[in-house]
């Protein structure tokens, strides 16, 4: 009825920070940086979400998880809005999120290293490795190599540590 009965927005953000990403459950949706806005419109709680990759299969699950989490806290009317612009970037991962990824065995993204499709200087560098230096999330060695641009989810690449010999995921910069 009146705004006094609405849960505080800071409280809502706290609830959302407890909703795990369905693909990488060690980080939350707010760690991922995809929740862009939360606001009350009358009796309806409007949550604005910016999707990660265009075809990420987790997108619908994420929306469902947000609705479920808010319904569980007693919010009856929830509306999800998709915001495409500006597009999601891995730069929006929180500092805490990056540390959680590393502890989980996924090397966090190195900001500013996304490809821009301008190939000059890149095509001459080959042999399967990139000029990125990614530290192994297990042993910390920078003696690592890229196995594949693709990994177990659209947002990750496959790497290998040449010191501890373990394969690991790298959260791609985009």
């Amino acid at each position: 009825m009146q705004s006094a009965t609405h849960p505080d927005l800071a409280e809502v953000w706290r609830w959302l920070s407890e909703v795990p990403d369905p693909e990488i459950p060690v980080i939350s949706l707010t760690d991922l940086g995809i929740v862009r806005d939360v606001a009350w419109e009358g009796e309806t709680l409007v949550v604005t979400v910016t999707p990660t990759y265009s075809g990420c299969p987790a997108t619908t699950i994420i929306n469902l998880d947000i609705e479920t989490a808010l319904h569980d806290r007693g919010v009856e009317k929830v509306r999800l809005e998709r915001r495409l612009s500006p597009p999601w970037t891995s730069d929006w991962l929180t500092v805490e999120g990056r540390e959680k990824l590393r502890a989980y065995g996924i090397a966090p993204p190195i900001d500013g290293t996304a490809p821009d499709g301008r190939l000059a200087g890149r095509i001459s560098r080959l042999a399967g490795t990139s000029n990125l230096v990614i530290a192994c999330p297990r042993c910390g060695s920078t003696h690592t190599e890229r196995l594949s641009q693709a990994g177990s989810t659209p947002c990750k690449a496959s790497w290998r540590c040449k010191d501890c010999l373990e394969p690991f995921d790298y959260f791609k910069c985009i």
């Binding site: 265009s54 495409l84 500006p86 597009p87 999601w88 970037t89 490809p115 190939l119 985009i174």
Partner: peptide, 18 residues
């Protein structure tokens, strides 16, 4: 808006195919 999102993904596609 759609193009700004897609172009970042396609930069990866082009890097890989090239």
């Amino acid at each position: 808006g759609i193009a700004a999102k897609a172009v970042k993904e396609v930069a990866y596609h082009l890097e890989r195919s090239a």
